[in-house]
Design a protein around this nucleic acid. Structure first.
Lengths: 335, 335
DNA sequence: TTGTATGCGTTATCAG
DNA sequence: CTGATAACGCATACAA
């Protein structure tokens, strides 16, 4: 493979001049530039990114650590983040953490090998106790709920307000016994806890008593868990006329479970989710949900990270960004 | 940031000894090793991957070019491919091509900048005419349908046989007027053409005449397109009792469209898709489909690529791998 | 078992 | 406007 040296020789100039041409430096005479470009074409020259990285101390790649690219919400996020990096000419390398605290911490230290110029980290396993570990000397943006007031920039979802709006919507549609299916609840600042808070706030505002028997914690936020749990609840004699699901994924399972029970949605029970995944619009019945503006979250995360990368350590403090949301009313709550 | 030199100084040895320790070379006395490890820990030493890459001529990263990580089938594939690279200690960087020929060719030449050790490329936009462009001097594995007998390794889906089995299944369940919704049909070797072939073969075997009026080409293989087209077909007076959809994504839309028309599935019309995406099991009705063994495809693609990377150019010829499939019968075809 | 010399390909700096 | 020099951090080959 041709190197800058080869091109220089072929063009009858010094390697430095070739470098100038490659990097679009001004002060290069037109005729020289053309000579060089010709030689480059003839030799099919390609820059060696590894060498450039070594010299510049940058890799041009950022890491994105998510539980799994194939999970509905994270897949969408990954797609948007990759799209958002394009305008900066940055590439994205994906690490799958499986939502485990261990792997999230690993991703954090992998980046320290100067593999990436920065890291966007979805914290699902890590909790507030791990805040100390975030004190690293390279750019990090946290995407998720479990770390607040950490030492780094943070992009979060409108969990409490969104959930409150979702629950409120069920109440407006006439529901009085509203079940909530959450994922695992931990230390007060995970997604499920936050969304439960919104749920409670909405009930309180409406003067509806909170009934612990209607609030269930799933082992995992999957379709299967949603389907199984809703059937078990009804089999156990639970009485509800509305269900707020912690994610659309769970809601898909709940719709399935209710169908198995022969319960009509929305006539007998109304259902709402959170995330606005693409298929919600096409389910039967179509799924009402909260749309947390993924595009904005992705864009913001990338912009924050790039700002840190460019400005190195010069940006003081850290930023907390919570995206806006909108309620999407579809058939599962009566349209 | 500490370098090998710093560690060497701190440990009172030469830089080379540190390197030996880092790379687990034998012939290092235990006591020396420990001295070095101690110094590394004290200085919080991290290898500089860029430097190592330059020296070794490898980057430890492969590229994965897919239309979009968020599309059902490709997201799943990406997740599996990333998982499959883990055992090799390789990272995956994702390029989104948007299914455009241009961007696919770009991905191909980007890799030539020695950014990646190899590339897994989903060809959707590129066609047989671009085969020449695949003659590159670094490892490439094609994942997709449109390139056959190219100069590189190729992992493909069982499109014809799978589609044939899907159509055959509808026939077995009593369908006689079977519609087919495909994506864009191009040059005989794209997914849609291949799946159409399977469809025709099944009809022929069963002695059912091929009716062009029942075969429709969608502008894009989306849920929306599926829903709209099936409604338009029925509005136009089309008469069918079964639908074979080119992908599960389209099938989800079709189920929705049929619901809009008040047509009962599977009683009046039976529906089957292709891909076995996760949500199929939880739809109402649950979706019958062809499962092309994604895990095997991902594993195979990674293994083939790694073989090329390790063996450099030493592997002769190229391999064509077509995965096996299984039929998943669910409610949409009568269980 | 450990150390020395050298170069991977590029670019920053500064001189011409 | 162009070029000489040096250095980024590491690992191969070989010598001691």
């Amino acid at each position: 493979m041709a190197t800058i040296q080869d091109v220089a020789k072929a063009a009858g100039v010094s390697p430095m001049t070739v470098s100038h041409v490659i990097n679009d430096h001004p002060h290069v005479r037109k005729s020289t530039r053309e000579k060089v470009l010709l030689a480059m074409a003839k030799l099919d020259y390609r820059v060696n990114v590894a060498a450039r990285n070594l010299r510049k101390g940058r890799t041009g790649t950022i890491g994105l650590a998510v539980p799994e690219v194939n999970r509905p919400y994270y897949g969408q996020l990954a797609a948007l983040i990759i799209a958002a990096t394009e305008k900066y000419g940055i590439r994205v390398s994906i690490e799958q953490t499986g939502a485990s605290r261990e792997n999230e911490l690993d991703a954090l230290s992998l980046s320290r090998n100067r593999l990436y110029d920065g890291l966007i980290l979805s914290t699902v396993g890590m909790g507030p106790k791990d805040v100390e570990r975030l004190k690293v000397d390279y750019p990090v943006v946290i995407l998720g709920e479990r770390i607040f007031d950490g030492p780094v920039d943070h992009v979060a979802m409108p969990n409490v307000d969104g959930s409150r709006a979702a629950t409120r919507h069920l109440i407006d549609r006439g529901c009085r016994r509203i079940a909530m299916l959450s994922g695992q609840v931990g230390d007060e600042v995970d997604v499920s806890s936050l969304r439960r808070s919104g749920y409670r706030l909405a009930l309180e505002s409406a003067g509806i008593p909170y009934d612990p028997a209607l609030v269930h914690e799933l082992g995992s936020s999957t379709m299967r868990a949603g389907a199984e749990r809703i059937r078990a609840m009804r089999d156990g004699g639970a009485d509800f006329d509305g269900v707020f699901c912690v994610t659309d994924t769970v809601a898909v399972g709940v719709l399935r479970g209710l169908a198995d029970l022969g319960i009509r949605v929305p006539d007998e029970v109304k259902v709402i989710g959170f995330d606005n995944v693409e298929e919600g619009e096409f389910l039967v019945p179509s799924l009402s949900t909260i749309d947390p503006d993924h595009v904005m979250m992705a864009t913001r995360a990338v912009d924050l990270l790039v700002r840190r990368i460019e400005g190195s350590t010069s940006v003081d403090g850290h930023e907390e960004f919570v995206s806006h949301f909108s309620l999407v009313a579809r058939e599962s709550t009566g349209g």
